[in-house]
Nucleic acid binder design. Structure first.
Lengths: 188, 188
DNA sequence: GTCTATAATCGGATAGAC
DNA sequence: GTCTATCCGATTATAGAC
């Protein structure tokens, strides 16, 4: 049988997309290779033509999820305030397709091995850079770090609470607070 | 063989202590019943005389870890500022015996079933109440929520980064920021 | 490159002796 | 109440056909 040159890469991307979705939604351990491959429209046997282990998939999937989330929130946010508002929105909390791995996997990653933590750290630093580069943003390092913690921490916490009223209040409060620091030292 | 009336309860507490330690350190999935029982000085077979399932143990262990952490930080903190400083300290980050499950398991819990999330929510509300009751603390709800997010989110994030310099900076920045809000509306 | 079938392992839960 | 031995389901990874 003959395969298009692009076919393998397409399959690989399908697997990664499915994995990014499932891992951020259910965590590493609650997702089997079967689940990922089924979601990608294939069966288990094909997996190892693309990745050497579930761990390798995990790392790449987290990266992909991070890029996808970043891009999504960037595209829909002209200002730093928009970015914060969108990130800490109920849409993000409930979204079926966009979930930031920094929030979905904060504590998960802490229990994984160093390589996963390194990947996470890399994504986190990209997140910081993004926050910092928004033109009208207060970009002292401490202000940026605080925003990041309020965004990631607020969203992570909201996801773990059964009291959805309280979860929403957290999102709202963090959103408002994260917008304040940038006014100090900004131009208007 | 005859057993002291207190023996069973002692064993139970040993198991819970070991479980609280292991689960907050490694997460639910990376810890087997074997591990817990070995740490408690027993073998697997004895487990089911105390708990009906690993899940049941998880819930109780989280509660125990929460109470232990709360008590530890309360005891060593006269003021709200002390509490924040101690919670966001490097000692807490590196501690072998005291780790707050709210930070260690934020995103883990999000992937678990409702009952675990309910337990987590309960602990979180206790945490809020504690923050609120500190006499000199600013206790508007929003201020308390922000402190909680900075503490839990900051510690969770610090645990997941390989860049320990950055992790420390996060702890320090969150610590300072969490102390600010309470000055508004306080008495001095 | 993807499939089906299977090997190998690990971990939760149970049974029965003491 | 705790032990050892065992069952059993789930899941990662591999083998070999197409």
């Amino acid at each position: 049988m003959v395969w298009k040159a692009s076919h393998k890469e397409e399959s690989r991307q399908k697997i990664l997309t499915a994995a990014a979705d499932l891992f951020t939604r259910k965590g590493f351990n609650r997702v089997g290779i079967d689940d990922v491959m089924a979601a990608a429209g294939m069966t288990r046997g094909a997996f190892y033509a693309h990745f050497s282990s579930k761990f390798e998939l995990y790392e790449e999937a987290i990266l992909k999820a991070g890029r996808a989330a970043m891009q999504h929130f960037e595209e829909n946010s002209a200002s730093s305030e928009d970015l914060i508002k969108n990130y800490l929105s109920e849409e993000h909390l409930l979204s079926d397709d966009i979930r930031c791995p920094l929030a979905c996997l904060v504590s998960d990653v802490a229990h994984d091995d160093v390589r996963v933590k390194q990947t996470y750290t890399k994504i986190f630093k990209g997140f910081l850079k993004n926050l910092q580069e928004k033109p009208e943003s207060g970009n002292e390092e401490s202000a940026v770090l605080l925003k990041a913690v309020l965004m990631i921490g607020g969203m992570a916490l909201a996801r773990s609470l059964t009291d959805k009223q309280l979860a929403k209040k957290i999102l709202k409060t963090c959103s408002e607070a994260a917008m304040v620091p940038e006014r100090e030292g900004s131009n208007y």
